[in-house]
Structure formats: C-alpha cells, structure tokens
Design a protein around this nucleic acid. Structure first.
Ligand SMILES: [Mn+2]
Ligand SMILES: [Mn+2]
Ligand SMILES: [Mn+2]
Ligand SMILES: [Mn+2]
Lengths: 220, 220
DNA sequence: ATCTTTATTTAGACATATCTAAAATAATAT
DNA sequence: ATATTATTTTAGATATGTCTAAATAAAGAT
C-alpha cells in the first residue's frame, strides 16, 4: 500500500499534531526525522497528491481522515511489536524502539491481528502509550506531567513522553519505572528542579525530566 | 548493512546454486524472482563490486564466502520467523512464506538470537528445511525425492522442495503433511504417476508432485 | 515601511532499483 | 563455416527518496 518512508512521515505528522497545535511545519518534521526541509517538502507534495494530508505552500500540513487512520495503524503495529519484544522476548523497555521501527512496516493484516491475540490484546505498550484498535480508535488517558504537580501531590508513574533509549536508560539508572508511586517533595525555585520520592528512595530531577514523566491519579 | 533487494538476490543465488550446479545464469535468477534479465545484470555487477559474488560477463555468477554467509544469515532469519508464525501465532504452513519474506530483512542480531531462544532453538522450519546457526552452518539431511523410490519402498515425509502456497494447499487438500508415513504402491508407466499410501488413505500423484516430496528413512 | 533574518520551496543532482528496446555474445542448427 | 536462435548485456528511461545550493516567501526588527 504505502512505502516505509510515507508511513514514517504520516506517523511523524500525527505525533507532531498531538504535541503542538494544528498545522505542522516543514522544519518541525525535518528535525524530527533528521532529514532536510527540502526532502520534507517533496514528500508533503506526494502525500497531498494521495489525499493523506492537506498541504498548502508555506502553511504547513495536517492529516486527512485517511492519513490519520494510516498513521494510527502504523502506530498500532509499532506498539504491539514493542509489547511482543518486551513480554515474549525479554527485551528491556529501552531496547525495543528501533526494532519496532522496522517491524511496524511489515504488511499483513492477519499477522497483526494474530499478534494482538497472542499478546492477549494489550491496551498499553511498554512505555505506557495506548495501543489503537483495528479501527484506529485510541484511548485518551487522564495523566499529568510532573511539572504540573504542586508540592505534596502524589500519584503513579504510568507513562513517558520521551521514549528514547537515552531517557529510558536514565530512568533505569535512577530506579524509576512504570507503576512506581511518586510524590513531589519540593520544587527548587532557583533551577526549577523537582525533589521527588518513591516507595524506595528520594531523588532530584530537572524540570526537563519532570516534563517527560506522566502521572496518573494525582492526589492533594 | 545490505539492502532488501541485495539480500533477496543473495538468497536466490544460494538456492539456485544448491538446486542446479555451480554458476547460476542471469535468466535463471530473473525467472525465480520475477524480474527482467537486465535488472539481474545490473544487480550482479553491484554484488560483484561488493565482493559478494564472482561474476564474469556471460558466464553466470556464484557466491563468495561472504556472499554465502550473508545468504545463510537471511535464510536463518526467514526460517526462524516461519517457526514463530506457525508455532506461536498459529499460522498454517502455507500462510507464512510471504510474511517471513518481509520479516527476514529486519536488522538486529539480538532480535534473532532472542527469537531463537524463545522458540527453543528449532532445527527445522515448518516446511522441513534446516535452520542455519549463527555461523551459517547448516545440516545436510539424508532425504530422497519420491521419484527416486522403487515400487514397495516406504519412508517418512519430512520435507518439500516447493514451499509455495499453491503446492502446500494442494497437500493440505490431499491430507498429506510432514511426519506422514508414505509407501509407493505402484508407478504407472503411461503417465509416470505415483500411487502412494499413507496410514490413513491412498492417492495418486503426478511425477511433478512426487519430485517435490522429500522422504527420510526409505526402506525396501 | 523598509531592512534583515528565518523558513520554505525550487532547481538540479545523485543513489537505488526497476523497465523496454537495441546491441552484443554465445549456443545451436544446417 | 555460416546462419539462426537464445541469452545476456548495454543504453536510456522511469520512479522513489534523498541532498545541496539558489530563489522565494514570510516573519521579525528598526
Ligand atoms: Mn516506540
Ligand atoms: Mn518506522
Ligand atoms: Mn525477502
Ligand atoms: Mn520455509
């Protein structure tokens, strides 16, 4: 159906639409997928021709309904494969992204539905991201970044905004993982660092790190 | 490392070297992978430049040691994925080839070694083909095509030369599968058809079909 | 309102992999 | 040995996806 390159662009546009507002700019895409703006322009024209995006010169792009659905289908495959790698092959959560990046492009409806069943229809991937269903429906989770929390507030770490290997390895080193209870002990005004506490230990994180940690059921 | 196209050519050359003698001709490759002879020539030049094959104009090609090893590594991945699809995802043996054709190109040493362990280090794929190890070592099985058998001889069906969906579906329909005990009852001289018998039934197969069935432990 | 900087697009090139049609070579037949 | 046929290679074209450098448009500053 669509090429790997096309699928990667659609996925990227989808993610950037969620992260920022509506229209996504050429440079934003170029940075995200480490390519040149001119290459992006070329691809956007092609995707627009195939009615997967709405693209107006100098105005950025956004996905059409078919484009959005295609993106979600690729994301579904990516996240199911990540589950497989962690749950069945005993990969760590920081090792799976690049492999899933390849596996997500394998074409077979049957394969993905059988994989889904084999994994017992998981709802979340190893990074806490929701897995879209066959129809591209995706649940929206009620979470809050640590930077939005007040001193004294606590909740459960259920997701990360950044799934890069470096960030996940940092969390491993700091002994932070999904499911951990987290409480904000103090916020240092000077550098905006957060002093947090888990069941087992205390630590200090930068606001940059705090921004990337998603908490559920925040109390107080 | 190598592109999908390059890997597919190497795999094809490897298979044709086994099937026919030494040097493999341009047209033979072209037919096998359903492309044009001119495309094959182009690719052979490229592979020769990368020292994966020895190619002399009008003389056909054969694999170098690095070429053979690369081919075997792709074959290893193909067959391990086929095992996964059948054993874990409950695919039928006639449904897995095309999907494995894609999965075999996923790049990750770790993935394939973990998959191997997950499957408990299988030695044969669902079509009875041996799986090379990490070093490209592959066992050679003692088998015989039914066309080589005499009337009254019997043995166990352990492999097929043709793993195409159509052939495998034909075998399903005729209730023939790996592990079946098979005996040659009669050979019709007029059309060279074989009358064979299994534990459960008798049937007549053409010599073309007989050629593609591999038998082990042939007695009498 | 004009100048300057930044963002985006276009033009032209390159790499990969494929094709058709024509030319060259090898194999076969007379 | 020469003619015919089959195989293989070359030449030139196309499609995809990328890049650099130059041109254009938009945004920001004075
Ligand atoms: Mn991922
Ligand atoms: Mn990808
Ligand atoms: Mn393949
Ligand atoms: Mn097989």
């Amino acid at each position: 159906m669509y090429s790997q390159a096309e699928e990667n662009y659609l996925k990227t546009i989808y993610a950037l639409e969620r992260e920022y507002g509506n229209e996504v700019s050429t440079n934003l895409i170029a940075n995200k997928i480490k390519t040149k703006a001119s290459s992006v322009t070329d691809m956007l024209k092609k995707l627009a021709l195939k009615k997967l995006v709405i693209y107006k010169k100098y105005q950025g792009v956004y996905l059409t309904e078919p484009g959005r659905l295609t993106a979600l289908r690729v994301i579904r495959k990516h996240r199911l494969w990540e589950c497989f790698l962690v749950q069945k092959l005993n990969f760590k959560w920081d090792e799976v992204h690049d492999i899933a990046e390849q596996l997500e492009h394998v074409k077979s409806e049957l394969l993905i539905s059988k994989l889904d069943a084999f994994l017992r229809f998981p709802k979340l991937d190893p990074h806490g991201d929701p897995i879209p269903d066959e129809q591209g429906r995706i649940i929206k989770r009620q979470t809050m970044s640590i930077v939005e929390m007040k001193i004294g507030a606590s909740g459960t770490l259920v997701g990360v905004k950044d799934s890069s290997e470096t960030f996940l390895k940092y969390l491993n080193k700091k002994n932070l993982g999904l499911g951990d209870k987290v409480k904000v002990i103090d916020i240092e005004p000077y550098d905006n660092s957060y002093h947090i506490e888990t069941k087992t230990h205390r630590l200090v994180i930068t606001s940059n790190v705090a921004e990337n940690l998603l908490i559920k059921n925040v109390k107080r």
